[in-house]
């Protein structure tokens, strides 16, 4: 069926339907204007400084920590599905197969047209982007930034280097490295919930920050002290620690690097089953 079917009678009907949807949505949004209920978020704001100076990190990783874990899993799944679609790990029945598995060829690069200056500039820029990504992830609980951003910055460095140098990419994230780092990221994030689960019974309870006094002081200092900071606020001086939030952020960053890097890798360099890959997969 070609798109031309949407012209004529069907198109008119579809446009009318879309108009109805638009009017309905707009009329409801108009009612919402100025009447948004702040609800529970007000309480979050009151409590947030007890954990870390960066409110967003506190919200995303402390209150919504488990939600963010599943969101992290979405990115991971996205990468695995893309890799599956491009050709890796296609399973078949032992007794019956319809077609050969799909494989994807690498892209063809034409890097000759890039100027020499760009090529000279490429490597330092990629390295600086990598270190910027690392800076963003380490400062997640105190200032803007976090795992997602770090992952995106690092993989953009990878993409940048791939554009400048083609197959001679100086940032050589291998297949196994990416799969391994993604798995370490998601697995690590998941397992960071374990200390809280074992001690307080709540999965992903922030044992380092321990604002509700549920765990022993020893555990509190093991997870909390490495990240303890002095906060000078209007209300006074606080010694606050984000607890496990920086660690979660690093795991998150690893996962995003693994996932997005894998997608880039599959599209840029193709994916085929090599014999060495079949001996021992993964890292």
């Amino acid at each position: 069926m070609d798109p031309s079917e949407l012209r004529g009678k069907r198109g008119v009907i579809a446009v009318i339907a879309l108009l109805i949807i638009g009017v309905g949505l707009m009329s409801s949004l108009e009612r919402l204007a100025g009447n948004v209920s702040p609800g529970i978020s007000r309480i979050y704001n009151i409590l947030a400084y007890l954990v870390a100076p960066n409110n967003i990190a506190t919200w995303v990783y402390d209150w919504r920590g488990f939600d963010t874990l599943i969101e992290t899993a979405v990115i991971y799944v996205g990468a695995v599905v893309s890799a599956l679609a491009i050709g890796r790990g296609v399973v078949q029945m032992k007794h019956y197969s319809e077609e050969a598995p799909v494989t994807s060829p690498p892209l063809e690069y034409r890097t000759e047209s890039l100027t020499v200056i760009l090529k000279l500039f490429g490597l330092p820029a990629a390295i600086l982007l990598l270190s910027y990504g690392i800076m963003v992830v380490t400062a997640s609980s105190t200032s803007g930034g976090g795992g997602f951003q770090c992952g995106v910055i690092m993989t953009s460095a990878y993409l940048l280097a791939a554009i400048f140098y083609g197959k001679e990419n100086p940032i050589r994230f291998g297949k196994r490295f990416l799969i391994g780092i993604g798995a370490v990221g998601l697995g690590g994030y998941t397992l960071l919930g374990l200390p809280g689960f074992l001690t307080s019974g709540y999965w992903q309870y922030n044992v380092g920050a321990d604002i509700w006094n549920l765990v022993s002081p020893t555990l509190h200092s093991i997870f909390g002290d490495p990240f303890r900071l002095t906060l000078y606020l209007q209300e006074g001086v606080f010694y606050s620690t984000p607890g496990i939030i920086p660690l979660i952020n690093i795991a998150e960053a690893f996962n995003v690097i693994g996932a997005i890097g894998l997608i880039y890798f599959a599209f840029l360099y193709g994916w085929s089953e090599q014999p060495e890959d079949q001996e021992k997969g993964g890292k």
Partner: peptide, 17 residues
């Protein structure tokens, strides 16, 4: 919830065994 997620990560990692 967590066991299936961890299993998914592990089996993806060991891939071919």
């Amino acid at each position: 919830v967590v066991i299936p997620i961890l299993v998914a990560v592990v089996v993806n990692l060991i891939y071919n065994r």
